[in-house]
Design a protein around this nucleic acid. Sequence first.
DNA 1: TATTGTTATACTCTATAACTATA
DNA 2: TATAGTTATAGAGTATAACAATA
Lengths: 179, 179
Amino acid sequence: MAYSEAVSSGSLIILELKQIMAKDSKNADSYEAVPASLSNSAGFLLNMAARSIREKVTAALEPLGMTTQELGLLRILDGQGANTQQALCNKHNIDRTTMVQIVDRLEERQLVMRQQSTEDRRANLIHLTPRGRKTLAKANRLTKKQQEQFLMPLSETEWEALRQSLIKLLVHHGRGKTD
Amino acid sequence: MAYSEAVSSGSLIILELKQIMAKDSKNADSYEAVPASLSNSAGFLLNMAARSIREKVTAALEPLGMTTQELGLLRILDGQGANTQQALCNKHNIDRTTMVQIVDRLEERQLVMRQQSTEDRRANLIHLTPRGRKTLAKANRLTKKQQEQFLMPLSETEWEALRQSLIKLLVHHGRGKTD
DNA sequence: TATTGTTATACTCTATAACTATA
DNA sequence: TATAGTTATAGAGTATAACAATA
């Protein structure tokens, strides 16, 4: 289940937090302490939160037989129109050979279509099919619900602040190709 | 490089943001637009931010030959003392068989030690060795620097708000075993 | 009978190297 | 000579199933 994704994956921080919050309650003993450093670790907190919503979204997409990665690709195609595989690689930050497999799977399910580019006959333009568009709409509906559930503990203001902070971090650490 | 980790991995959001910010600049055209939905996607933003810091920390740990996952385990052992493999599994949320391999690798490098529990002779207590403690101290120094760099674009107040929001989310969605 | 740790095995995701067809 | 896509292959990281020792 876990990738080597977190400075410390798992549920410890939650346990610690519950312990702190239940300090005066009789249930405190059923939770374990955790090094305080973890609740100050940006990596730990971000990875845990990311993992939490990713798992929820992954589960929500399961009936559609779609992965979060595939959803991301479909969203790019929906927002930007047809792209070559190479362009998708740059935008999604994955390898050419991996892209072949992802597009293979999407094409099998007729969610996208390969079309040789007339401008450069080496390149495939990847098109979203009507079926792909419909599936994407379903996926967006499902994931919207997940996001709402996930963000429930935050107020609108808090979510907006979180959003802005994350955007700031991403802009500042912008990696990736500019195409 | 990318796991199927993000609703959409890659650098698109960054491109979009730069585009917005450079709207009046002559460089705007070198960036690509991206579906606006992605900048509102908690999954996308969290996964991208998590991935960004994770990659930095992973790189920083490379000279120590340590993964972020291993660092997490060492921190647990440092904060809580010896744990059985099973306990570590619950806390780290990974499989028994995977834990065997992780502990194998840590033991090879003499960062931890297996010791049969006297209370339950089936169980191994995993101890941090002096060498493990020293390596952990080094790792903590390195990762502290990474975190500071990563959080640079945020003010103290913003980081504290981000931290609190992430903690709220984790507490509310607390999964994992309570041991 | 259930649980801890282990081994053997397999699956998923990803990347490297070599190929083809274009440019 | 370089690039887009493909194929075969290999490497991580993880999990499932079966087993030994112990509870």
